[in-house]
Design a protein around this nucleic acid. Structure first.
Lengths: 214, 214
DNA sequence: CAAGTAGCTTGCACTCAGTGCAATAATCAA
DNA sequence: TTGATTATTGCACTGAGTGCAAGCTACTTG
């Protein structure tokens, strides 16, 4: 099987346009059916039928049923990473990611984000892969941070900063999907970063003598 | 199908002993084959054959092939949570989890941990589910923290602390598996918590005026 | 425009994961 | 010992995912 994922060079031409169109039809059909009857209860044959393609052709566009949803939140890591690379000289790593995360998330339509997130939650397998994709984003951010700040004082520092950033996104998204939440994604992110800073700084005084209890 | 997961009440009796024994045989067979030829290349029939059971019986013990590995790192969340609930009155949340995490991880055989971790890394599906299980642990810790510290000043605070704790474990485990790493898991965890504190505290000064660049 | 090439689509046949059902065998409790 | 539980197994089935080869469609070059 040839590997999907590489949306090719031409960008114009009937062939490429058709391909994009087919991909979009599959995505639409998939989401429509997922919302309607659940992810696990939807079969590939149904998606293929609604998209007007054969079962076999589906696999030329997505590796699996789940990838339809997963593909929707790809690219976010790279968007944040790009902003990190362009961070001003004065910024500290954590401030840079904070700014990059918030600026990026401000551009994302929140309603779609919540809808997709809720859908993903309904299938354990998809949920698992979503978590894994967060780890991918974490690595992407870490790479960008290392590019921007070579030779950090501590080996783990930048990786931890990346982890915290992704964690903030994860929690803010989760909170956004909760019933009765009226704050925006950006507000929730600000809150998450502020809370983290307070909580960690508060513990700084005595964290070298970690009390181990039984 | 009856649900597995519930290792029952009797604890003695021939039936229960046999069940434990069968489960152990399946686990051994699975790991043996996974190491030998890879997770994805190992079929259920092979595992069942080596464990001396039928294919059908396998599913009375594990939900899937992957669960053999996943089950090995279950329980860690609950162990840490238990220590959190027993944390002294003086401790701050972050200090408490730090102590609980380190005390718990100190008890885990590091060689096994690294071996399992490396094995899991070879299968994307298993890797994804491992990340998902970390999120489960995160929720377990969060629940314990809320029990110990009801009414936190900020809604997200304890969840963030739980997130940081799991993140530290994740990074330390990862580092432990790297070639040439000579520090112990506990040392790596101490390092992770220290680094986090320094990095976050350093950014505290100006994090209220998050610089957003384009 | 003609013809060849490269890429897309499809059907077919296959392997493997996972589940429901029903029959049989082993254990347990009285 | 006997009746109730629980474990084991085979069988048949659905659905995911892949390799292969044939046919079709768009692109390119002369």
């Amino acid at each position: 099987m040839t590997v999907p994922e590489k949306e090719a060079q031409p960008l114009s031409g009937l062939r490429e346009r058709k391909r994009q169109e087919t991909r979009r039809r599959i995505t639409d059909a998939g989401i429509c059916l997922f919302v309607d009857k659940g992810i696990d209860a939807t079969t590939l044959d149904e998606i293929a039928a609604m998209a007007g393609i054969s079962r076999r052709t589906f696999f030329h566009y997505f590796r699996s049923k789940d990838d339809i949803l997963l593909s929707l939140q790809q690219g976010m890591g790279e968007m944040i990473a790009e902003r990190i690379r362009q961070a001003g000289d004065a910024a500290l790593p954590l401030d840079a990611v904070r700014g990059a995360v918030i600026a990026t998330c401000a551009e994302i339509p929140a309603d779609d984000m919540v809808a997709i997130d809720r859908l993903m939650r309904s299938s354990p397998a998809v949920q698992a892969r979503k978590q894994a994709s967060y780890v991918e984003h974490e690595r992407t951010l870490d790479a960008a941070l290392r590019e921007r700040w070579p030779d950090p004082p501590r080996a783990m520092a930048l990786r931890l900063v990346a982890m915290v950033a992704i964690g903030a996104i994860r929690l803010a998204t989760e909170a956004l999907g909760m019933e009765g939440e009226r704050r925006t994604l950006v507000e929730l992110l600000e809150n998450a970063f502020d809370t983290l800073t307070d909580e960690v700084s508060g513990a700084k005084a005595d964290n070298r003598t970690a009390p181990v209890q039984g």
